[in-house]
Amino acid sequence: MRAALHAEWTKLITVPIYYPALIVLLTVGLSVTASVFGGEDPVQVSLLGVQLGQAVVAAWAVQLLAGEFGTGLALATFTALPRRLTVLAAKTALLLTGVLGAALLSVGASVLAGRALIGDYPALSSGPLLRAAGGAVLYLLAIALLGLGVAAVLRSPVAATGTILGLLYLAPVIIDFFHNPDWQRAIFRSMPSTAGLTVLSTVDLASLPVQPWPGLGVAATWAFVTFGIGAAVICARDV
């Protein structure tokens, strides 16, 4: 495992690291912009950047895993380290660590910016704020796992990026087009981004189709199941 970690670390840092920087930049950028405008739910407004950051997290996960299949590097990796699950575990550990760092930094900066910019912002120790901020970090980690899973199954980096971003961004838009409240609720409760991002809400929770923690649970379930399928596929398939 140490050798695997070391190998993956070397691969990770010898190509320019745009992704973590982009996560922080886009998340904090949109959060601060939204905080300038303000809104009904100060906490959710100050964390709006997660909507952008998640795309970069997903793209990073896809690049890390499917990028190797695209260039044929995967063949060399699996020849040198034939235990495929070890390779996957090393990649996952590094990605999750990287995403955790970037997420902590972006969420922390977003909350501080929100507190500085929005008038009636809750105290830093308030329960709902801590839940939303912690939930945002966990959500981004779940998206990283989901990205790895989709990439492992699809292997084409471009198709994987399109699929996962579609999974994240299409649901909230398409819900608006269906003029059927039952369908809208069903889609909202079952898709990872709509259900998962309820963890950012702190106002009028009763009107949400799914509550924050169960909502995050939906996103986590998507992540674990897809990641599990991805791991099984990596073990079973030819490189």
């Binding site: 939204a34 809104g39 709006l48 909507q51 971003l165 838009v173």
Partner: peptide, 13 residues
């Protein structure tokens, strides 16, 4: 796609 999503469904005013 994302600007449309942010403009129509997000908490942006």
């Amino acid at each position: 796609i994302v600007p449309y999503l942010l403009a129509t469904t997000s908490v942006l005013p």
